[in-house]
């Protein structure tokens, strides 16, 4: 009995820029998937959320911005990867920082991928398609028309 086929996937997005939240949501909607997007706009609340021990409803994927107020994305990543259960969740860095040090640090803390935020909606759609197809098993997305 395979339950994953009809499973509704859940993506946790940590992003404080409402424009980027809008663009990611828009891209996911355009891809016609029934993915649930949970948004946190700061590091503290997402760490609290993932720390809840009896949380059986963990996300299937985490999208993490680096440049966040107070606790930055790299610190969140480090915390997540130090926690046995949640460390298994694929965590993808989605940032506008092209600093080599940020990229090196992300992979050091076991990020699954490092994406530079695209410059247009086509780029957002292609990126989300790649992420969903590669990290959320069994989700097929029709070829994008450009």
């Amino acid at each position: 009995m395979d339950t994953t086929i009809n499973k509704k996937y859940k993506i946790l997005l940590v992003e404080d820029n409402p424009d980027d939240v809008f663009l990611i949501k828009y891209a996911i909607d355009e891809l016609k998937t029934s993915i649930e997007l949970i948004v946190f706009n700061n590091g503290q609340s997402v760490i609290e959320h993932l720390n809840t021990d009896n949380n059986i409803d963990f996300p299937d994927l985490i999208l993490l911005d680096i440049n966040l107020p107070k606790v930055n994305g790299l610190e969140i990543l480090k915390t997540i990867k130090a926690k046995p259960i949640v460390s298994a969740i694929p965590t993808i860095i989605l940032t506008s920082s092209d600093l080599p040090s940020d990229m090196e640090c992300s992979y050091k803390y076991a990020a699954s991928m490092y994406f530079l935020k695209p410059n247009n909606i086509q780029g957002f759609k292609e990126m989300m398609k790649y992420i969903i197809e590669n990290y959320l098993d069994g989700t097929k997305i029709p070829t994008l028309s450009s």
Binding site: N17, D19, L23, Y26, S96, S97, K117, N119, N120
Partner: peptide, 20 residues
């Protein structure tokens, strides 16, 4: 330059939605 690029990216992204 990093901070300048951010709003630029937003302008281009939203313009591209309109175009789309």
């Amino acid at each position: 330059s990093h901070d300048l690029r951010e709003p630029l990216r937003t302008i281009e992204s939203f313009a591209s939605i309109l175009q789309d």
